[in-house]
Design a protein around this nucleic acid. Structure first.
Lengths: 202, 202
DNA sequence: TACATATTGACAGTCCACTCCCATTTGGGG
DNA sequence: CCCCAAATGGGAGTGGACTGTCAATATGTA
């Protein structure tokens, strides 16, 4: 927390080592999860693979589940949406951001996102967290909609809309993961979000 | 598996006792969960309260989580929907069944449904199952839509629609639970499903 | 270099879900 | 009434997440 810039920060050796260790644990954990599944992988195995003691593991991550958790792209999405014209319909604004900055970010994290998402879909024990995250997403989305329409984010109608949007997001991401990330995620969004805007034709 | 009827079946004392035991375990478990939370309640406590040994607990329920699981109302919904005119729009058909037979069922199970739902929303460890169930619901809904429109249930558009519908369902049930079940669930549906039919006005 | 502090490993220990086994009890059928 | 099979209780045992302590080591600092 220097007064000036933090880029190329003069991080002490200690701090750098800590970051490396944390990252090494996380990476090895992911590798093992991908190989044997989440439940079947023990903390000891992760610790061994990362060449630390299990005590150290727990010093870095309070619980095994915490290795997987990662604050997702909600803040980025919220941020990006705020920079859009206020009178633009919400669904269009979302599409706009996905074609822009956010889309680029997603492409960068592609590999990681792919594995992480696959895990959270496949592994029962991780789904709970996924739900919590989805919850946050819904709330964030409700916030955004409320902000843009001048209504209350707790309004049941707003909540329903947010839930529907996030549900479609999830479905698309899932489809994307099933296809091993071949398709263009942004394009999937562009093709299917209008469903919600125009009403389900069923 | 008698050749004839099973109603008012001549269940032996043995079978009746088993059902009672099973039910007693389940009831006591729910009571304790409601009182102390799911994680904080141990199997031993449940067994004690139900006056069985913990061995017996596991003879009735393979895992602790299984006490909470219950096959939900999807089959009933699917069934009910099939009895609706085939040319009726899907969303209307759903509303129709909710005002009818299915609605009645829900009212009967109100208390149980309320507690069970609250648990699955509040308790992280149970959410995983909730997700799995929601998954099944989505698939079932996709089936129904596909059936009525003559399209493929794996069609991404259909999946999105199903996901959106189930998401709104969930949001409404959740709202209903938050309000301790005061509101009329069927009426909530009637008021908010049209959102999806007409398109989100945001 | 010497000292203070942060980080780590090793290890013992807890808690709880879940398993296995065996002796006892209980219900059903001849 | 008697015997068999099913259901139960009790207890010992396992595995794995997580905690706490203490001594050893690594780092930053004067």
């Amino acid at each position: 927390m220097t007064t000036h810039e933090t880029s190329a920060a003069p991080l002490g050796l200690r701090e750098r080592k800590k970051q490396q260790t944390r990252e090494r644990i996380r990476r090895e954990a992911y590798r093992l999860f991908a190989e044997h599944g989440y439940e079947a992988t023990t903390v000891d195995q992760i610790a061994d693979a990362a060449e630390v003691s299990s005590s150290t593991f727990f010093r870095y991550f309070p619980t095994k589940e915490d290795v997987v958790i990662q604050d997702e792209y909600d803040p980025a999405l919220t941020e990006a949406l705020r920079s859009r014209p206020a009178d633009e319909p919400v669904l269009e604004a979302i599409l706009g951001t996905l074609k822009g900055s956010l889309g680029a970010t997603l492409q960068q994290d592609r590999e990681d996102l792919l594995l992480r998402t696959r895990l959270t879909f496949e592994d029962p024990a991780l789904r709970a967290h996924n739900v919590a995250e989805q919850d946050r997403s819904e709330r964030a989305m409700a916030e955004v909609i409320a902000e843009r329409t001048g209504r209350d984010p707790a309004d049941l109608e707003i909540r329903c809309a947010a839930a529907a949007i996030i549900a479609v997001f999830t479905t698309l991401v899932r489809y994307w993961v099933e296809g091993a990330g071949q398709e263009d995620l942004a394009e999937l969004y562009a093709r299917h979000l209008p469903l919600l805007a125009r009403g389900l034709p069923f």
